[in-house]
């Protein structure tokens, strides 16, 4: 047994990982979700807003992190649309605009067809410069955004008529997979203007631990990795979707199935590796 473990071909480990993720997907296994405090905090921040309030949704991620952040984007947009908030989408990542298009297509146009572009939601598109962009739009939105992503001048967009800078937003929702992302939004927007701006965020697993020092003073709510997405999805669907929510709003909770099996596999692999190590150590000492 030990010799099998010692000589375990790494491709066999790959195969195990593939099966650990693939089988639960094929079986479509689902598990119950119990929302944690931080997911509840994100939900409560959005819940506290009034219809017509302005929310800036910064989509700073790309397809490489869509597995984690895509479901968050879907349920955050759904929640904001249910609350009848005015949505201002923007991106600091070049691929971010595609992520914005995805939620506009999959959430707003499918389930909220009454929402009017320019009155209820607007896509400001991408601007390069990361923190440089945040710095500018904090004091003057129009210097950088002459038109929206569709080429319409800002002063012809009703929901932007009286918006001069993003300090007028009632909440910033940052979805981030790295730099620039939530960290920059906290550093450059929220920290200097704590009385004007509030932020909640969703981020990848890699980023989540790095953002904890900002909680709760600078960042009241955070959805970390796919688990955070699943918890928030559960909260939003319980509150708004009724008995039979559309299947696409179960994406994060569905993905917790492969997550569980793969995590258990990881633990078993670590234990197996340690068994080999300590047995060999023992033999060596003898």
């Amino acid at each position: 047994m030990l010799s099998i473990l010692r000589n375990l071909d790494r491709r066999l480990i790959f195969l195990m990982m593939l099966l650990a993720v693939a089988v639960p997907i094929l079986l479509q296994s689902r598990f119950p979700e119990k929302p944690s405090g931080l997911a509840q905090a994100v939900f409560d921040e959005i819940e506290a807003l009034q219809p017509g309030d302005r929310v800036l949704l910064a989509f700073d991620f790309d397809p490489a992190s869509e597995g984690e952040l895509g479901p968050m984007a879907t349920s955050l947009t759904y929640h904001c649309a249910q609350k009848e908030l005015r949505l201002y989408f923007m991106a600091l990542w070049p691929v971010g605009p595609q992520m914005i298009s995805n939620v506009i297509q999959d959430v707003i146009r499918r389930d909220f067809p009454h929402m009017v572009y320019g009155e209820d939601y607007v896509d400001l598109g991408f601007k390069s410069g990361g923190e440089g962009v945040i710095k500018v739009i904090l004091t003057d939105l129009r210097q950088l955004y002459t038109t929206d992503a569709r080429g319409t001048p800002l002063n012809r967009i009703p929901m932007l008529e009286d918006v001069t800078d993003i300090r007028q937003m009632d909440l910033i929702v940052s979805l981030s997979a790295g730099t620039p992302g939530t960290k920059e939004w906290v550093q450059y927007a929220v920290t200097p203007y704590p009385h004007d701006l509030r932020i909640v965020a969703g981020c990848t697993g890699i980023q989540a631990p790095l953002l904890y020092p900002y909680i709760p003073q600078q960042l009241p709510g955070l959805l970390g990795a796919i688990k955070g997405a699943a918890e928030y999805e559960e909260l939003v669907m319980q509150a708004y979707a009724g008995e039979d929510p559309p299947a696409r709003y179960a994406e994060a909770r569905r993905r917790m199935g492969p997550q569980l099996v793969a995590h258990v596999l990881m633990i078993l692999l670590i234990i197996a590796g340690n068994v080999v190590y300590f047995t060999e150590q023992k033999r060596g000492r003898r």
Partner: peptide, 23 residues
């Protein structure tokens, strides 16, 4: 250790979405 756990979680989610695409 926590960062490692979260990193693993993230990577698996990325694999899941690709397999979902295939299936």
């Amino acid at each position: 250790g926590a960062a490692f756990g979260y990193t693993v979680m993230g990577r698996i989610a990325l694999l899941a979405i690709r397999l979902e695409f295939l299936f």
